[in-house]
C-alpha cells in the first residue's frame, strides 16, 4: 500500500507508475484498476481487493484521493490496517486539508509514503533537468540547462517533455548536450517576473529592462503586477537610501523590515541614485499605475515610458 502525497503532478504520476510497474513485474497478469477519487463507490474497493478465484493480483490506483467520499475513506483506512496480500493500492493525494482523514489514517496504518512537492527554487529545477537527461544516458552542460529552463519555464511536465525531445533530437554519438544544441531548438523566455524587470530598470539597464518588459507582457504577466514591482523596487531604494547611516548589517535589515540579502542587493542598486531621482521616478510610476488602470490608452506604452523615466532619473541625482 502506497500513499503519494504532494502537489507536483508529474512526480506523483511517476511515483504511481513506478509502483504499478513494480507490481506488474512481479506478476505480469496483474489487473490494473485506475480510479478517480470522486467516482469511487462505497464497497468498490472491498470488491476489488478481495482475493480472486484464479489468484490474480490486483493493482488499484486512486487519483484525486482528496475527493473520496467519507464512507470510502473509512473503508480504505480500515482496509489499510489489514491489507490484502494480493492487492497493491496506490493513493494519490495532492496535500492540503481536504481529505486529511485519509492521509492521517493511512499513514497511521503504516503505508509507504512518498512525498512529492513542487520545486520552488531554480536550482532544484536545474537539478531536475540534469537528472532527466542523465536518466536518458546523456549529460547536459550547466549553461545549456539554464538556457533550457529560461526558455521552457517552470512547469515540470513541459521541462520533462523538452528534455526527452532534446535527447531524441541531438545526435547520440555526442554524449553531452551543449548550449548551442539547446539554442537550436529553444529561444526566448517563458517566464519573466515583474521583479526581473524592476531590477533591470532600477540598475539602469534600459535595453534589458525594456526587453524583459516585452517578454513579461507577452507571456501574460498583468501590467498591474509590473507597476507594483517597479514601485516596490523604488520603494526599497528610498528606504535603504534614507536609512540612518549608523546602522549596519542585521540591525539595518531589522530597522527596514527587509531580509539582509535584499538590503545588500538594494545597496548595490543604490549606486547612481539620488533623492531627487528617486522622487521623480516614483512620480513616473504613479502616473503609469493611473494609466494602466484605465487612464491611458495602452498599458504597455505606459510601462515602457515609466521604465524610461526611471532609467533617465537614475543619474539625475
Amino acid at each position: 500500500m502506497t500513499l503519494v502525497t504532494g502537489d507536483e503532478e508529474l512526480l506523483a504520476e511517476r511515483a504511481a507508475a513506478s509502483v504499478v510497474a513494480a507490481a506488474r513485474a512481479a506478476d505480469p497478469g496483474a489487473e490494473t484498476h485506475d480510479l478517480l477519487g470522486g467516482k469511487v463507490e462505497p464497497g468498490e474497493l472491498t470488491r476489488l481487493t478481495s482475493p480472486s478465484l484464479f489468484g490474480d493480483r490486483a493493482v488499484i490506483v486512486i487519483r484525486s484521493a482528496q475527493d473520496l467520499a467519507k464512507d470510502v475513506i473509512a473503508e480504505i483506512v480500515s482496509y489499510a490496517a489489514h491489507p490484502s496480500e494480493d492487492a497493491t493500492l496506490v493513493l494519490l493525494h495532492p496535500g492540503g486539508v481536504k481529505g486529511k482523514a485519509l492521509v492521517d489514517g493511512v499513514k497511521k496504518a503504516g503505508a509507504r509514503v512518498i512525498t512529492v512537492s513542487k520545486l520552488t527554487k531554480p536550482a532544484e529545477r536545474l537539478d531536475f533537468i540534469k537528472s532527466e537527461i542523465r536518466s536518458a544516458g546523456r549529460t547536459i552542460a550547466p549553461d545549456a540547462a539554464q538556457a533550457l529552463l529560461d526558455a521552457v519555464g517552470s512547469d515540470l511536465r513541459e521541462l520533462a517533455a523538452a528534455c526527452s525531445q532534446l535527447v531524441f533530437d541531438t545526435p547520440s554519438d555526442k554524449k553531452g548536450i551543449d548550449a548551442a544544441a539547446v539554442a537550436r531548438y529553444h529561444r526566448g523566455r517563458a517566464e519573466v517576473s515583474g521583479f526581473t524587470v524592476a531590477d533591470a530598470a532600477v540598475e539602469g539597464r534600459l535595453a534589458d529592462a525594456l526587453e524583459q518588459l516585452r517578454w513579461a507582457l507577452s507571456t501574460g504577466v498583468a501590467p498591474v503586477l509590473l507597476v507594483s514591482a517597479l514601485a516596490g523596487g523604488l520603494r526599497s531604494l528610498a528606504k535603504v537610501g534614507g536609512a540612518p547611516r549608523n546602522l549596519r548589517g542585521g540591525q539595518l535589515a531589522a530597522h527596514l523590515g527587509m531580509p539582509p540579502w535584499k538590503v545588500d542587493r538594494v545597496k548595490r542598486q543604490l549606486n547612481g541614485w539620488g533623492p531627487e531621482g528617486i522622487s521623480h521616478a516614483i512620480q513616473a510610476v504613479a502616473t503609469a499605475d493611473e494609466q494602466v488602470k484605465g487612464g491611458g490608452a495602452d498599458p504597455a506604452y505606459a510601462l515602457e515610458h515609466a521604465i524610461q523615466q526611471i532609467v533617465a532619473n537614475r543619474t539625475g541625482r
Partner: peptide, 14 residues
C-alpha cells in the same frame, strides 16, 4: 481612479 493607494500616496509625499 483606483490607483494603488500606497503608490499614489508615496508619489504625493515625494
Amino acid at each position: 481612479a483606483n490607483v494603488n493607494p500606497q503608490i499614489a500616496v508615496e508619489a504625493m509625499t515625494m
